[in-house]
Amino acid sequence: MNLIITDQRSKILIKHASALMFIKLHGPPLRQWNPSPYVTTWLRHNHRSADDSRTRVAAPISSDSPDALWQFL
Results as ranks from 00 to 15, higher is better:
residue 64 D to C: 03
residue 42 W to Q: 05
residue 49 S to M: 02
residue 20 L to T: 01
residue 60 P to Q: 10
residue 6 T to K: 05
residue 59 A to T: 08
residue 58 A to F: 03
residue 13 L to M: 04
residue 19 A to P: 01
residue 33 W to R: 15
residue 9 R to F: 10
residue 47 H to V: 00
residue 21 M to A: 12
residue 31 R to Q: 11
residue 47 H to D: 00
residue 39 V to M: 07
residue 45 H to N: 13
residue 1 M to A: 09
residue 34 N to G: 03
residue 7 D to V: 02
residue 62 S to K: 13
residue 65 S to L: 05
residue 41 T to E: 11
residue 37 P to K: 06
residue 33 W to D: 09
residue 3 L to G: 01
residue 49 S to A: 12
residue 33 W to G: 02
residue 48 R to V: 06
residue 46 N to D: 08
residue 35 P to S: 05
residue 3 L to T: 10
residue 55 T to C: 14
residue 42 W to H: 15
residue 51 D to P: 00
residue 39 V to R: 09
residue 21 M to T: 12
residue 1 M to L: 07
residue 20 L to Y: 04
residue 13 L to S: 15
residue 3 L to Q: 13
residue 22 F to Y: 11
residue 39 V to G: 00
residue 73 L to R: 10
residue 1 M to V: 04
residue 23 I to G: 03
residue 5 I to V: 13
residue 33 W to S: 14
residue 14 I to H: 05
residue 52 D to Y: 14
residue 34 N to P: 04
residue 36 S to I: 12
residue 30 L to W: 09
residue 26 H to A: 12
residue 66 P to E: 03
residue 16 H to V: 03
residue 61 I to V: 15
residue 8 Q to R: 15
residue 12 I to V: 07
residue 53 S to M: 09
residue 35 P to L: 04
residue 68 A to H: 06
residue 14 I to G: 00
residue 29 P to Y: 07
residue 33 W to L: 15
residue 26 H to W: 07
residue 6 T to S: 07
residue 19 A to K: 15
residue 52 D to Q: 05
residue 39 V to P: 00
residue 24 K to I: 02
residue 73 L to E: 08
residue 7 D to M: 04
residue 16 H to K: 12
residue 14 I to E: 13
residue 24 K to N: 08
residue 30 L to Y: 08
residue 8 Q to K: 15
residue 71 Q to A: 14
residue 56 R to N: 08
residue 52 D to A: 13
residue 56 R to A: 10
residue 40 T to N: 05
residue 34 N to A: 07
residue 11 K to Y: 02
residue 40 T to A: 07
residue 57 V to G: 02
residue 10 S to E: 05
residue 6 T to C: 01
residue 45 H to R: 14
residue 40 T to H: 05
residue 11 K to I: 00
residue 68 A to E: 14
residue 6 T to Y: 01
residue 45 H to C: 07
residue 43 L to A: 03
residue 49 S to D: 12
residue 59 A to V: 02
residue 10 S to T: 03
residue 21 M to W: 06
residue 12 I to R: 00
residue 71 Q to Y: 07
residue 53 S to T: 15
residue 1 M to K: 04
residue 61 I to K: 14
residue 1 M to T: 05
residue 7 D to Y: 04
residue 69 L to S: 14
residue 35 P to E: 03
residue 28 P to L: 14
residue 40 T to M: 04
residue 62 S to I: 12
residue 48 R to L: 08
residue 14 I to N: 06
residue 28 P to V: 13
residue 25 L to R: 10
residue 59 A to R: 13
residue 43 L to F: 02
residue 48 R to C: 05
residue 46 N to V: 01
